[in-house]
Nucleic acid binder design. Sequence first.
DNA 1: ACTGTACCCTGTAGGC
DNA 2: TGCCTACAGGGTACAG
Length: 293
Amino acid sequence: MPELPEVETVRRGLEPHLVHATLKRVEARRADLRFPLPQGFAERLEGQRILSLERRAKYLIAQLSNAQCLIMHLGMTGRFTLVAKGKGETLGEYVYDTGADPRHDHVVFHLSNGADVVYNDPRRFGFMLLIADSERDAHPLFRHMGTEPLGSGLTAEYLARRAHGKKVNLKTFLMDQRIVAGIGNIYASEALWRAGLKPGRAAHTLADARGRPTERAHALVPAIRTVLEDAIRAGGSTLKDYRNAGGGEGAFQESFAVYDRDGAPCARTGCGGRIRRSVISGRATYACSRCQR
DNA sequence: ACTGTACCCTGTAGGC
DNA sequence: TGCCTACAGGGTACAG
């Protein structure tokens, strides 16, 4: 669920409270999420100061004072909620009122500044890792990760080079984290609509015979950028589970051009087409059958 | 090297 | 009301 804009919104909500705070106590209420939590998870975190909170793709990364970093992924239904000072003062397992089912409150960070951060995740597709800073870039999770779409690395030349000779369809290509990091199922459909490109089109058509960008690649770059920037500005998209660190919903779902709009008229001026749902690589895909080519 | 499928897990919506 | 099935923002491991 949480794609780049949602993870970035959560990051911005947590950052002012987490950075410079010390992890006073950490509760791991179960031994595993998607994967087992690291050995000695709570003990290894307690007493550490948080130096920074970054985002890479859909991952949150907290740098710790002991040169380790805590890597967090929200999976489909993961949610971090900041609970105001004073709420978690009781010993043992405090039951938090975050709006989520407290049975799925799996990890709680008690901060030195009095705030608590609760990680809730009904489906437990999320996970947390502890690795040394020095191993981060070489770690299998990040080693082959693609460029950040909001960074300077996303250019028509880059897309063309990576797409050159690839038969895979454009939507799957965009969702491939080794190509562009952070685009998921919603924003892939939305970006392709903005670019006027059909999701099923072959990725190699972003490049000419020499691997130079075509007009399509030039259209796709600003489409990706603007849809992600607009979504961040709107605080992400809430379909069901997603909430920001303050428990609030995103608003970008109100601006979807295609996602979850099967049968709706296309919003492009003068198009007159209709949005259609299809399935590509097992995922729901939405596009206008007329103006996306 | 590609593709499609299954799977991890829980909740919810819709059909009957 | 209940039972059953399909589907959901992610990512990986397979078989073919």
